[in-house]
């Protein structure tokens, strides 16, 4: 990617926007983002970005003979929208104090985040090739040593409680930034999440957003077979959260929801994204095995062709 991506990408490319030297991220202080809004050659929308994220995740997992590709594919659209105008961030200044904090609690799906950050310009795309290799900083569970990553996870049930602490810090320090934590459905089995879900509304942390990648398949079976979460929205509502449910691959729906948080003053927001595990690759979709399997070179080529991103 020779040109940095514009901060605000539409869901679907709608012609070529005029080239402007200065853009402002929504809600950020004037002049907080200075980028060329001339779109990059191939990525003109968050949908394009999602396809590129999926393609990178597939390449990384294949090269490293790693697992967890299906969960990366299921959340790619959430990431693409988050990083196309929802999150206030500066790729050239990852520790910008007023940035929104994004936390990946399902750390095993880190390939999608690494790909997003590289495509956004936090570090060179070429580094993605080192994923999972000896000595790489791109570990197979998300690592805070990587520019743009706030917090290392890998054990489940840590992201939301940690995010609660950050949201509390913003509240006590009267800072405008928000905390977005992306969780898997399977990790809602962890009691620590429910400790945080119980406490966040108590302190009116409406700067805290939980996104649930609700693909309904966990590690050793479907969510329904292991520990049914349905009705999940009702559970969060009973814990005093503001809740919305969206089709988790519909960029406009995701964007509409995330751009308007908090939905209720004084309440944290939970976006339940109904997703498909392995989304975008027909032989991976809704298949438990692809929580673990690593694609063969032929399968990778097939998957990339399906995504419209052939090597």
């Amino acid at each position: 990617m020779s040109e940095p991506l514009p901060m605000n990408l539409p869901s679907v490319a709608v012609g070529v926007p005029p080239a402007v030297e200065s853009g402002v991220s929504p809600g950020g202080p004037p002049g907080s983002v200075t980028v060329r809004t001339e779109p990059a050659p191939t990525i003109r929308s968050s949908v394009d970005l999602a396809a590129a994220i999926r393609a990178h995740a597939l390449r990384m997992v294949t090269r490293a003979k790693a697992s967890h590709v299906a969960g990366a594919l299921s959340m790619a659209d959430l990431l693409a929208v988050l990083y196309s105008g929802v999150l206030r961030h500066r790729p050239d200044q990852p520790d910008w104090p007023d940035r929104d904090r994004f936390l990946l609690s399902k750390g095993h799906s880190c390939t999608a985040v690494y790909a997003t950050l590289a495509l956004r310009g936090f570090f060179p795309e070429s580094e993605l090739a080192t994923y999972g290799q000896d000595g790489s900083r791109l570990m197979a569970h998300i690592s805070h040593k990587v520019p743009g990553v706030e917090f290392s996870t890998g054990s489940l049930g840590h992201g939301l409680p940690f995010g609660l602490g950050k949201a509390l810090a913003a509240q006590r320090d009267r800072k405008p930034w928000r905390v977005f934590t992306l969780l898997s459905d399977g990790e809602l089995d962890e009691g620590s999440n429910w400790e945080a879900i119980l406490l966040a509304p108590q302190h009116r942390l409406d700067n805290l957003v939980a996104l649930v990648d609700y693909n309904k398949i966990q590690s050793l079976g479907s969510v329904a077979e292991v520990a049914e979460l349905h009705p999940l929205a009702d559970k969060f509502r009973a814990f005093r959260w503001a809740v919305r449910e969206v089709a988790g691959h519909d960029h406009n729906a995701i964007r509409d929801a995330l751009e308007t948080v908090p939905w209720e003053p004084g309440r944290p927001s939970c976006l339940i994204a109904h997703t498909t595990k392995g989304r975008g690759v027909d032989f991976m979709q809704d298949q438990l095995a692809w929580h673990y399997k690593s694609p063969s070179p032929a399968q990778l080529a097939d998957a990339l062709r399906q995504l419209g991103c052939p090597d």
Partner: peptide, 11 residues
């Protein structure tokens, strides 16, 4: 939760 949120505050 107490320990993780403490870490979040500390961060």
């Amino acid at each position: 939760n107490m320990t993780s949120l403490a870490a979040g505050l500390a961060s």
